[in-house]
């Protein structure tokens, strides 16, 4: 005979526990943390390079953790812009999890950081499930990927707070309807914010960088005891 025991718990509760610890560590230092997610080649590293370059002249101190299955290439690119960047190679795993981030932070001291960017492994499915202790998941959808992606990959759009509609410079060449992409994404996540970006030409990265700075200030205002 068998007995049925009800359980009712999140399958990823161990990841969530580690992520809660990371969130507390970021919160205690007033660090605003962004988890950047997209399919491979959408432009995450390029966006971060432009962002770091822009922040170089400001008072905001940034750092980057970048996830990749195999190589160190993204960290090499990112380190040229004046801020610390650390590669997390997952060795085959198609997403970052909270434990990988915690281990990486052994080599990346959090003191003196205002904004921590985490570039997730290029993948629109798996990274959505894993909380990394971030303040917000930002999904990058480039216009060359097709405006049907929000409903094909609802999980990530559902969990994102901001969508960057990226490579807008290519819009004239891509059959991509930004209004349709935004409408579909908001079917899945009505509160989703949207910013249009390009690394090569208008509209640039200014609106996105201003968004990051606003969110950092809002976090600092909400947690005034955090050390600057």
């Amino acid at each position: 005979m068998t007995e049925r025991v009800p359980v009712r718990e999140n399958v990823l509760k161990e990841n969530d526990r580690v992520a809660a610890g990371l969130r507390a560590a970021f919160g205690g230092r007033g660090i605003f943390c962004v988890n950047l997610i997209s399919s491979p080649g959408a432009g995450k590293t390029s966006i971060l390079e432009g962002t770091l370059e822009a922040l170089r002249g400001s008072s905001v101190r940034a750092a980057v953790l970048t996830g990749d299955i195999q190589t160190e290439r993204d960290a090499d690119r990112l380190r040229r812009h004046g801020f610390p960047a650390l590669q997390i190679t997952t060795g085959g795993t198609c997403h970052l999890d909270a434990a990988m981030v915690r281990r990486a932070l052994d080599s990346l001291p959090l003191d003196g950081i205002d904004v921590l960017f985490i570039e997730n492994v290029g993948n629109l499915v798996c990274p959505a499930s894993y909380d990394l202790g971030e303040d917000v998941k930002v999904v990058v959808l480039s216009v060359t990927e097709g405006d049907d992606k929000p409903l094909k990959y609802p999980g990530i759009f559902r969990r994102a707070g901001l969508m960057l509609l990226h490579k807008m410079d290519l819009l004239p060449h891509a059959r991509f309807d930004p209004a349709a992409a935004v409408a579909d994404a908001r079917r899945v996540q009505p509160d989703l914010e949207v910013v249009e970006t390009s690394c090569y030409g208008a509209p640039g990265l200014g609106a996105w960088i201003a968004w990051v700075q606003r969110r950092l200030e809002a976090k600092r205002a909400a947690e005034p005891h955090a050390q600057p």
């Binding site: 359980v7 399958v11 990823l12 399919s39 795993t93 198609c94 993948n123 629109l124 999980g155």
Partner: peptide
């Protein structure tokens, strides 16, 4: 229902999930 599959290596993500399930089940 939109189909959701790991675009890189089908199943790798579910492998991590399966391990999490097995760990929780053993604890219980």
């Amino acid at each position: 229902v939109p189909s959701v599959r790991c675009p890189l290596f089908q199943g790798i993500h579910e492998l991590s999930i399966a391990e999490s399930i097995a760990d929780s089940v053993r604890q219980h």
